[in-house]
Design a protein around this nucleic acid. Structure first.
Length: 96
RNA sequence: CGAGCUAGCCGGGUUGCCGCAUGAAAUAUUUGAGGAAAGUCCGAGCAUCAAUGGGCAAGAGUGCAAGCUAACUACUUGUGAAGGCGACUUCAAGGACAGUGCAACAGAAAAAUACCGCCCAAAAGGUUUCCCCUUUCGGGUAAGGAUGGAAAGGCGAGGUAAGAGCUCACCCGCAAAUUGGCGACAAGGCGCGAUGUAAACCCCACUCGAUGCAAGAUCGGGAGCAUUUAUGCAGCCCUAGCGCUCCCCACAUCGCUUGAGCGAUAUAGCGAUAUACCGCCUAGAUAGAUGGCAACCGAACACAGAACUCGGCUUACAGACUAACUCGUGCU
RNA sequence: GCGGGAGUGACUCAGUGGUAGAGUGUCACCUUGCCAAGGUGAAAGUCGCGGGUCCGAGUCCCGUCUCCCGCU
């Protein structure tokens, strides 16, 4: 994914997407630079919650990885939601 | 009222909708992070390693006493030392006449020494009768000598050729008999006067086999050596035992949560803790589960996320509460 | 999860318990018509942080923080 994927950016996160035959798969990458265990778990939860309402409208033929930047750690939920929607729109993967 | 000190406790709760993991089980429901889950600094369980069964070496750790515990270097209560007016707090707290090393600079000298000084005797010289002065050699001495963290117990008197605990008074330190205490130790003081450093090596006493759930168990295939002896398998030895070595595939299931478990009460104990009885079941994932949107409570804002499990230690921490005690001030 | 190492001038590193050093760089002066090279001199250190042992700690001991590496 990191070698071949197509990159799309937002202020505090990056989306990698690549064609796959296995259907929709979404991974999260939150490195130690973001924070300790508590902070990283929270970031992952917020990202999952942000993806959940979009799940039906995302293009099914790809695998995705969302990379969180350290600046995402102190953003509120609505901001995370906005950026996730933005990054999928920019990549042209939303079908609705 | 102010300042302090010690111990303990909490560190969110309730409701609705959507969502995650798990159990029972079949559409509705059970349970779901911490006081430190952290650091990994100690101690155990459990597992494997040739039985790690007995002994040795090497290495590591600990170092006041009694108790407590499954165990401990932890903990409790004491002893001693240091700090604080006090409540109280802190302490790796054995041994320096078993041995070795080190003590920079300064200083005569750093562990036993005579450089200067002081004193005695002899010789030579000056003077020349002596006294006195200078030099050399030999001996005595630790009173004085700008140092240093530390200088051979301190200070005064006697004493002496000069001096010296050599003797004496007062003080300092070590300390035998005896007495009290289970003990550390305390009181006591015959006698004695020893540099410091063991958190330098070390000595003495005591303790420790190694590796860790990524341990390991179950399930598959292949190669080499050996052919029931021997070789080989542990740091070394003894006894017992065993075919040995290597590679690939796979990550499924088990280990995986009921345990030296938690809570209340009573009894024993100053306490750590123990005993009895009653009640409770309280995460178990495997890319790794607790979140989102709202409402209310007076405010919900700290440090922070289980990964085999327990007992401690250490470190981080917004705020809230309870009790005992100490010091100061004012009033009665 | 388990184990090991490092932290010293701006940078790279030395450093037996006894005044903290070297090279590169920086600054000033000399040299040159100017620059470089060369020469002379100077400044720059909470020895990661907090305690302890010691007369005295960068060094020894304990705790702590950050970074790096290995097993897997």
């Amino acid at each position: 994914m990191f070698r071949k994927g197509e990159r799309t950016g937002a202020p505090d996160l990056t989306l990698l997407s690549a064609r796959s035959r296995e259907g929709l798969k979404i991974g999260l990458s939150v490195s130690k630079k973001v924070g300790g265990a508590v902070v990283r778990n929270r970031v992952k939860r917020l990202l999952r919650e942000a993806i959940r309402p979009l799940e039906d409208s995302i293009f099914k033929g790809c695998m995705y990885v969302i990379v969180a930047h350290p600046s995402l750690a102190d953003k509120p939920y609505c901001e995370v939601c906005r950026q996730v929607r933005l990054v999928f729109e920019r990549a042209g993967r939303l079908t609705c």
